[in-house]
Design a protein around this nucleic acid. Sequence first.
DNA 1: AATATATTTAAGCGATAATTTAATTAAGTC
DNA 2: GACTTAATTAAATTATCGCTTAAATATATT
Lengths: 102, 102
Amino acid sequence: MDRFAALGDPTRRAIVGLLSQADRRAGDIAAHFDATPPAISQHLKVLRDASLVRVERRGRERIYSLDPDGLAAMEAWIGETRRVWNGRLDALKTVLDQEERQ
Amino acid sequence: MDRFAALGDPTRRAIVGLLSQADRRAGDIAAHFDATPPAISQHLKVLRDASLVRVERRGRERIYSLDPDGLAAMEAWIGETRRVWNGRLDALKTVLDQEERQ
DNA sequence: AATATATTTAAGCGATAATTTAATTAAGTC
DNA sequence: GACTTAATTAAATTATCGCTTAAATATATT
């Protein structure tokens, strides 16, 4: 599942939101939702595979943290897409300006 | 389906990419993919519902164009999430700096 | 060593999504 | 008005997703 699909699920987006505020143990993340720990664990795996979060083992706990690189990559795709679109607008504007001057 | 889920599908992301370059007729969009026109038509509906693209009727053709507002909203969510994360980093840095000075 | 705690992995199931073929709608063309 | 073209909508099928319960793994506690 790619990054965008990973963030397509509202629960996973909420998890990313939580981790933007603070690193958290898997259990603490699960406690924020109605779903069972296994369900959240599976969401975390999706986010890991998408490089949106990282884990670190500490004893029997696992501390999850945000991986901003994954988010940056998504932001870059969106930004680039919008940049190309804006570029078209600018090109159109240039044409109109030139016609105006004739 | 929310915006992120809409862009979760690679075909739909490719459609958005095409429309960032130029407005296109539904049929021309479909021609870029292996899938059948009905499949693409349904993808276009998902993108429309997510306010990522717009349609304009012209005779029996439908011209699709990018709706940058939808992309902007996504970029804003990502940006805000990263901003919060960066804020944490800055806060940590401040604490360390203060400890250094003691 | 036995037991408890934290988390993940496995297996199965219902819901949703993506795709296909067939039918429909609507606008041009002869 | 019949026919073609452009695109969508409907119906059916297959694939994928997210969830649950049960089992497994690994660390800590007594």
